[in-house]
Simulated assay, not measured.
Amino acid sequence: MEELLHNISQCTICKAHLPLGPRPVATAHINSKIVIIGQAPGTKVHESGIPWDDQSGKKLRQWLNVTDEQFYNTENFAIIPMGFCYPGKAKTGDLPPRPECAPQWHTPLLEKMPNVELIILVGAYAQKYYLKDKAKRTLTETVGEYKTYLPKYFPIPHPSPTNRFWRSKNPWFEELVVPKLRKRTSSILQST
């Protein structure tokens, strides 16, 4: 696993497309129990090199009801974005994750983690990639049907502050789905 993570940290596969240059951000451990597959690092995470080290991460940890210590313990959580480097700015938010990372690195990483009990799919890019034709027409429908994908996958929206309008239009997510996510996360983390 260390060698694989080292190889990822040296990756330059899409260097020509990265406005800030490559700085792959991913964490994993052979004993990881939960994998979080998000989009791609933002500028703050690009600078710090720490995944989910921003407002989105605070909200995600709140949804999971975990401490920073629990979240950054790689034996609890592996963090594997769809794109490992900051992809650049779009008109609203960031550009989509680069398409090279997931096909290149996800399978080798997941194969080295035999104890994974849950994969949390954060946002539409991860959901479409992993759920394929089982993903619903929209992220809202996919998240609403989260039970369909259990016990392996748990689709959630992106916790970004730019997504606050989606959350205000869909209060059922935080009222009904987040408690189920917390319960599932807690039961996995307590099973050691």
Rank of each mutant, 00 (worst) to 15 (best):
S56F: 07
S56A: 15
G57F: 04
K58T: 12
K58G: 03
L60C: 03
Q62F: 06
W63K: 12
W63N: 11
L64V: 05
L64K: 10
N65C: 04
N65Y: 11
N65G: 08
N65F: 08
V66G: 07
V66T: 13
V66D: 10
T67Y: 09
T67M: 02
T67P: 06
D68R: 09
E69L: 02
E69Y: 02
E69P: 01
Q70G: 02
F71Y: 08
F71L: 01
Y72C: 00
N73M: 04
N73L: 09
T74V: 04
T74H: 10
T74Y: 00
N76W: 02
N76D: 10
N76Q: 06
F77N: 03
F77R: 00
F77P: 02
F77D: 00
F77W: 00
A78T: 03
A78G: 02
I80S: 01
I80Q: 03
P81F: 06
M82I: 10
G83N: 13
F84K: 04
Y86A: 01
P87S: 13
G88T: 07
G88D: 11
K89G: 04
K89N: 10
K89W: 07
A90R: 11
K91S: 08
K91R: 08
T92D: 00
T92C: 00
T92I: 05
T92E: 07
T92Y: 10
T92A: 02
G93R: 09
D94R: 08
L95A: 14
L95Y: 09
L95P: 03
P96Y: 09
P96C: 06
P97G: 11
P97E: 05
P97V: 08
R98K: 12
R98Y: 04
R98V: 08
R98E: 14
P99K: 15
P99H: 13
P99F: 03
E100K: 09
C101R: 03
A102R: 13
A102P: 00
Q104P: 00
W105R: 08
H106A: 05
H106S: 06
T107P: 00
T107R: 14
T107L: 12
L109Y: 02
L110K: 13
L110P: 07
E111A: 14
E111K: 15
E111R: 14
E111D: 15
P114I: 02
P114F: 12
P114Y: 08
N115S: 12
V116Q: 06
V116P: 06
E117Y: 01
E117H: 09
L118Q: 10
L118D: 10
L118E: 09
I119H: 02
I119P: 00
L121V: 02
L121M: 10
L121D: 11
L121P: 06
V122S: 05
V122N: 11
V122F: 12
G123Y: 11
A124R: 12
A124V: 01
Y125M: 08
Y125G: 07
Y125K: 13
Y125W: 10
Q127W: 08
Q127K: 04
K128V: 02
K128Q: 14
K128D: 15
K128R: 15
K128I: 03
K128S: 13
Y129C: 05
Y130H: 14
L131N: 11
K132W: 12
K132Y: 10
K132I: 05
D133C: 01
D133S: 15
A135N: 11
A135R: 09
A135E: 14
R137F: 07
R137W: 05
